[in-house]
Structures are given as C-alpha cells and as structure tokens.
Design a protein around this nucleic acid. Structure first.
Lengths: 482, 482
DNA sequence: ATGTCGGCGCCCCGCCGACAA
DNA sequence: TTGTCGGCGGGGCGCCGACAT
C-alpha cells in the first residue's frame, strides 16, 4: 500500500476580497471569516447581537475581559469616570468576525454608538433578532490525545464523527480511503488522507495531519473541530487548551493604560454620543458584555429577582455541547459598590447544582448520540453521575424536577464566587459558568436556600449543598485566564 | 569524522530569581534580563535613561509608537485632552528590561511620575547619567542568508566575528572544533558545534544550529548576534526583519482605545502627579519618547535652532554599527498644530546627506575592521559611495567638512518627511533615521538651504539637493511599521 | 471504540567539500 | 571570504497492525 503524498497542505491561500473593512480596519488584508466556523470555535453558548440592533454595553465586563487577557486585576491607578454609567444603551452599527492569525483565537469587533433613547420598534427589532438564529451545521469537536499530536502517527477519528461529518468512504476499496480537503478560518486549505483500517477497524487521518499539527502548533489537550456546511464543504477550526494570556500586548501598553483606555473611550463616547469600537473575545472573556437590548429588558422587567429564586444555567461540555445546571440565587449586591454603584453586572450570588429532570439511576443512553451537536440532553449520563457525585456527596435529593421553562434571564447576571465547585480538573467549568444562560424557575420551593450571612465568602458546611465546597480552588479557578 | 550529537539545545532552562517585579508586574515569572544583551538587541543608538533621574516624556511620541505597532495612524475619534501638555517633566522611578517570550523583541517598562518642578541638582544628576555609559562588550551581528536558515546546512560564521567573539580553537585537532554554549534573553541555553573546515577553510556552526533556527522561528533576513561579555560568557540574541505589527493586541483593544488609554493615563497622572507606566519598544517605536532631562535642556537652551543649521545625525548600519549623516534644518513648525500646539516633538524639517570629513574618491579601507562594534567610522566607504551616488546624483559638492563637534541635540528633534531618500531597498534607513542622534554643526554656510514655501510637501527640483527626491517613496517608507 | 506502542521503510535533515562570486 | 549546492549517511517521521482498555 503506497502512502499518498500530502498535497501541499496549508499552502499559501489567497485572501478573499477585502470587503468587511469598515470601522476600524486594523488588518488591511482582512478576510471574510466564515460565520458558522467562527460560531463553532466560539462555542455553543456564544450569541452575538445582530448589527443594526440595539444593545446594552457594560464597561465593567469589558474591563474584566482585559483583566482576564492580561492575567491582572484592575488596580487602583485607574481614575474614576463619574460620568460613565455602569451600562450604556447603544446602537450596534457593525459586527465583524476575526481570528488571530497566529493562534486562530476567535474574536469579534463591534462598533457601538450610545443612544440617549430608543423607541418600541427598536426594542422589538432587538427581540426579533434573538429568535433568528438558524441551527448550527453538523460538526464534531475532539480534544487531541498524546497520540494525535505526536509525530509517531496520525489522528484517530471518533467513529460517529467520521460517519456523520466526512463524506462516505467507498468500501469496495481495500482499505477504504479518500482525500479530505478542509478550509480553516483564514481560508487556508488543509488536506488529509482519510483511511479506514486497522484491527479493529477505525477511521484515521494520516498524510497531511502532522503538517496541520505543526502548522497550528497544536498540543495534546487542544481541540480540533470539523464542520460540514450546507454545501457539503469541510471546515475545520481549533481551540487551545492552554489559554496563555496575551501578555504580548503588554509590550505595547500597560494594563493600567488598557483599562483607562476602555473606560475613557466609553466615557468619551457616552458624553458625545459618538461611536466607539470594542473587541469581544468569547473564549478569553469571563462574560459577554454586549447583550441584546431585548434580553436585558426581559431579564430586568419580566422577573422579580430575589434570593431563593431558581433558574436554569447552561454549561459547555468538553465536546462543545451544552449541559443544564440549576442555579439558586443566594444574594443580590454590587460587586464593586465604590466604583460601580447599583450596577447590574454580576450582582447575583448563586450556588449551582447539576440539573436533572428525571434521572433514572445509572441510566444508559441507547439512542444514537450526536457528539458534536449542542445536544442539551443527558447523553453520557453515567459519566455525569461520576463527576457530580464526586463533589456533591451522596445525600443529594433533587425535588425540583418540575421545571418551568420561563423567560430568558441574561447571561451577565452571574454568581460572583459563591458556587459549588464541580470538577477541579475541568478548567472549562468556570468559563462555561460565566457564559451560562439562564432561565428562571419555579421559585416555590425555597428549602435549599443558603441564607449566607456573608455572601462573598462562602461559609463551608452550613448546608448539604456546599459540603464539598473548596473556596481556595474556586478562587484559583476564578483567576484562570478563561 | 563523527558528528557530535547536539546536547539538548534550548532544553528547559529554569527561570532566574524573580527580583525585578516592581511596578506593574504583568509577568509573574519575570526573569532578570541581561542589560548588555538587551542593549545589543535594541541597537547602538538606543539609550535608556537611568532610574532615579529626571526625564521628559512626550505623549505624542508614545502615541506614535502605538500607531507604529498597530500599523494604524491616530485618527479623529481620540478626544482632546486640553490639560495634557505636549511634554511632561517626570521622575523616572523604575526601568525594567523585557523581551517578548515569543519573538525575543526587546522592550522596556518605565514608571514615571510627573513633577511640577525640579532643582539644579536633579538636572546635574541627569547630566551625569548621560556620560556613565560603559562601553559595550564585544559582539557581532549577522543577517541570516538563505543558506543559514535552510535545513540543508548550518551557519556560516564571518571569519573576523568568529576570531573576535568565539573562544580560540585548538588548531592541533583535525578539523579544529569545539562546543559553544550561549544564553539568550530568557536564559535559555543553546549549544552549537563550532567547526573550522572546508576548502577554503571557514568557521561554521553545525549541530544545534537548526534547533535554534526552528526554535526561534528565524527566517532569511533576520539577524542573529553574539556577545562575549567580560566574564567570557557567550550571549546571543535575534532581531526580526519582518517587523509585523503586533496586531495580536488588536484582539483585546481597539487602536483607538489604546491611543485614548495612553493620553488619558498621562493626563490623569499629570493632573494628580501620580505615577504611571509606559512601555518603550526601541525597534518598533519611530523615536524615543522618554529622554533624559539634561539632554532636553542642552538641546533647547544651548542652541539657537534655525533653518540652515547643520548637525550630525547617527544612523544604524545593517551590521549594528553606526554611521554619520549630515542633516540640514529646512523648517521649524508644529507637526500637529491643532492637537499639539507649540510642541517640540518633530518640529524640525530636515534634509539629509551623507557625511564626509575628507572623502578620498574610491578610497578603500585597508585597516582592520570591526564589523560588529559601533565603529562610527568610514569602513566600507566604497559601498557607501555606491549607495549615495545612486540617489544624489554626481554634481554634489560637500564644502562643509569642517565639523564642529558641538553639543548634543536630542533625538526627537527630527525631520518630518522632508528628506532626501537614500536607498529605497534599504528599509532600515527610515528607522535608523528616526532614531538618529544629532550634533549641531557650523551654521556658517547656508548655501544649501532649501527655503521651501510649503515645508510639508517638498517641492521637487528646486535645488540640486532634492533633484532625485521621490516624495511618494518617502511617503511609503514613512508608513512602514519600522 | 480508541489510545498507545513495536516494527520498519523511506524521506529528508544535516554534515561534507566543491565551486563560484 | 562566504553563499550555494551535489553527495550521501543515518535519524526520525510516519504508516501499519497488535494489543489493551
């Protein structure tokens, strides 16, 4: 069997027509980023507002993103901007998608213009844009193993993923094989030899794979994802596991100046109602800080937020799916009452528990799974038990299975640090938690309310719910640059 | 002859004691950067002020550095800061040296505190710090050829460089060879096999070299430099040729916000006399924007700046040496009279000519050269003729060879765009020019003064001096991110 | 179903002098 | 003096199934 020569994978692809060069135009040779691939790399919980609609911008959240990117907290050198409110109502002029040419890290550039008022029609248009999300195309996401990234061999494709995403093989060949061609976020073309061989039989990517690994500088623990779009084309993206903060920018600007720049730019725009530009990095930022106006209104005016209230939270799984958890509000207070008084940014303290509707013990899913899709279901439920029982103990009784799928709460209403830790080895947890979406709950059963006296610092062992809580690890994970 | 196995070049070196973590502390595992190596990588014209002395800070220049790093000019979205003067007198609390862990790009972090006044003693101390620069250690710098960076072979060491920098070989061996061990800016250890072989005989680095090239991701055109310090240790650094702007930071902060951040941070510090932090990137910044106080005073108060005045300008050669050129002032005006009125930043328009003291035609230097050292002499003078006659024409008469080595002018007094272009194929020219140092001249002979009516836009062909001037190319080179 | 490893073929990395600029 | 290339030997890249989990 002769090995097929890898046909110049990643060879210089010509850039697309430079169309989306509005607004800032930092990168002169801007390419058009495929929106589906961008969304897949960003994760299933990320939802960008639509251009032309109205949004709410939170300077606090923007500052948090910089702090996370710089692995440095906001410090006291930053001056106060008394005329800058904790939220700005803005018209979102423009949204362009980007990807770092070195790391493939996805981010979005938004041009915002503060507005002093808006009418009902604009609110409705924002509401409409919430529902117009077409379903994501088929894709799968796999975390690379040591074997996948070593120079010793190729890439082992999960069976269901290969059958769902890749073109069907011609099984009359021995062994069945074909050439796969996929484009990345920068329109670079990568080609792989896809072969079905071995004993037992399995799907493998061989020729071309090592060029991809070395070209993208992938390491074990990073993830690769393949998409088949509606035109049956293959797209592929990556996600880095080791989220090193981009301290590269520290060679240009001090983190203090960055924070000042964000606040001063927003303050200047707010005073003059002039447009300004922000960058949103969904996988570096703890939370979304630009949210649709309708989402804000539903959260604030359609619900009575109070301690004891329960709601649904969405978390991202390792395979880029989603999973439900339950959050219980334990307190409402400003996270920074000095600088940002009466802010709605992270003003809820929450504890989190896994969310079951009707979990039969040791239930094993028999129906066909869809590993890559945001399933929002209970596939792999035995695994879930393993993880949850490890930190919640065995004496949990979930009585609140009667969920009321209520109105959407907004993602920025988030717990501060008062949450039960899931698996400390799962760094995605904090990030997913921060980006979680919420749905309110039947608030009738308040038997599990914590009633903490000092909500910022969780009191251990005052309830079965936080019996295994580890405040130091919570603290530590909070400071990860997720 | 058996090839020596490369002894794990670049294997994980342990970080030094974290000492210099004052001020910002962005990088927690800060290493102590070797000052001599940092200086060599920064270039012979870079001169950092000493900590504890007084300096002058120019927000305009700081903003220019960001613009150069972002490949984007300052635009109109930046608000005015009427209370921010064009220069700030500051106490320089702290200077720490850094190097980008990815690219080895050198930069310095400075903590400045604006002062409302200073006394004579502080001015004298600043003056003293100007003279206390001990001579640089021996080093050489070579631009890598295609053969140097290809996987086909090793590194060809220039003969004089090897003899001057490397430990002497034992010529009783056949062939003479030894192992070289050198540390880079991050205290990583690289080892090379240094061998003297071939017909004709030459110095080569073989085993270990390719690991260095791939580890540093060096390409043909990049430069590598070796230093032998006073303890006979080898240090090595790199310089990238393709100065791609660090648009990585654009995924965090818009360039507008960066400019605003710089100006707002300086304005806030100026109002409160509070400390602030800046980063100075000598090879990305067009000019130094933090200069010693004494240097400023000498330039402003010891000289009568006027059109027609001549002075000496220092340029960096490709081999990291220096070369003199002559500048003639053709105009004095604000570069941005709206935003920065009466600023002394780049308020001189200058034309440039090569500087000869007594150039014998087709003189060929016979004395031993020192390729790496800042020679400030006329080695390679025939080459210089080739370059200069190509753009100045043949009818140049230099009558001003009687130089008066006057007081130092400061580097920020710089031409705007009104200069004769040297070799368009030499991208270092603009950078060196921007970082040039100046010495004033005998201003008696004004016969070559340009007397331009519209100084910003040079009028072609109104003098023998700008007969070959190419404004468009000047413009183009000006926008390079040097 | 899939992660890891021994086996091993062959490509290409990398050391050599020839040769020319 | 030094940049490039043909020659060529050997290390490691990369394809294979075995085997374990």
């Amino acid at each position: 069997m002769k090995a097929m020569k890898a046909p110049a994978a990643g060879a210089g692809s010509t850039s697309n027509a430079a169309a989306s060069n509005s607004g800032e135009g930092v990168l002169p040779e801007k390419k058009t980023i495929n929106p589906e691939l961008w969304q897949a790399c960003a994760g299933p919980l990320v939802n960008l507002p639509a251009a032309g609609t109205h949004v709410v911008y939170f300077p606090q959240g923007h500052s948090e993103q910089v702090a996370a990117s710089m692995r440095k907290d906001v410090d006291a050198q930053v001056p106060n901007y008394p005329n800058l409110p904790s939220k700005l109502f803005c018209l979102l002029h423009n949204v362009t998608l980007h990807a770092d040419p070195e790391t493939d890290e996805v981010y979005a550039q938004m041009t915002l213009q503060p507005v002093s008022s808006f009418d009902k029609e604009e609110l409705l248009r924002s509401d409409l844009s919430l529902k117009s999300n077409k379903p994501l195309p088929e894709f799968f996401c796999k975390t690379l193993t040591a074997s996948d990234t070593s120079t010793h061999g190729g890439f082992s494709v999960p069976r269901r993923a290969a059958e769902k995403i890749f073109p069907p093989l011609d099984f009359s060949m021995q062994p069945p094989a074909q050439e796969l061609v996929a484009r990345d976020l920068h329109e670079n073309v990568w080609s792989f030899r896809h072969i079905y061989r071995g004993q037992p039989k399995r799907h493998l990517l061989t020729s071309g794979w090592s060029l991809f690994v070395s070209g993208k500088r992938l390491l074990a623990g990073d993830s690769v994802l393949f998409i088949r779009n509606e035109r049956q084309q293959l797209l592929l993206g990556t996600r880095r596991a080791n989220r090193q903060p981009t301290n590269i920018s520290s060679s240009v600007l001090s983190s203090d100046s960055m924070h000042i720049g964000i606040l001063a730019a927003a303050a200047h725009a707010a005073e003059n109602n002039s447009p300004f530009t922000v960058f949103y990095n969904p996988r570096a930022s703890p939370s979304e800080f630009v949210i649709p106006l309708a989402q804000y209104y539903k959260a604030v005016y359609n619900n009575q937020i109070s301690p004891g209230m329960r709601f649904r939270m969405m978390f991202e799984t390792e395979e880029s799916g989603t999973r439900r958890y339950m959050g219980t509000i334990t307190g409402i207070m400003d996270i920074d009452p000095v600088r940002w008084k009466s802010s709605q940014w992270r003003n809820l303290q929450v504890i989190i528990a896994p969310f079951f509707i009707c979990p039969p013990p040791f239930f094993r899913s028999k129906r066909p799974r869809q590993p890559g899709m945001p399933d929002d279901e209970y596939s792999d439920l035995d695994n879930m038990f393993k993880r949850t029982t490890a930190w919640l103990g065995n004496d949990i009784s979930m009585k609140d299975s009667h969920s009321v799928p209520g109105l959407s709460l907004i993602q920025w209403m988030n717990m501060q640090q008062n949450h039960v830790l899931s698996n400390p080895m799962q760094p995605n947890f904090m990030q997913s938690l921060a980006g979680s979406s919420m749905q309110n709950f039947d608030a009738a059963d308040h038997s599990h309310q914590m009633g903490l006296s000092t909500p910022q610092m969780p009191q251990p062992n005052n309830s079965q719910f936080n019996a295994h809580r580890l405040p130091q690890q919570v603290q530590q994970l909070d400071q990860l640059p997720k």
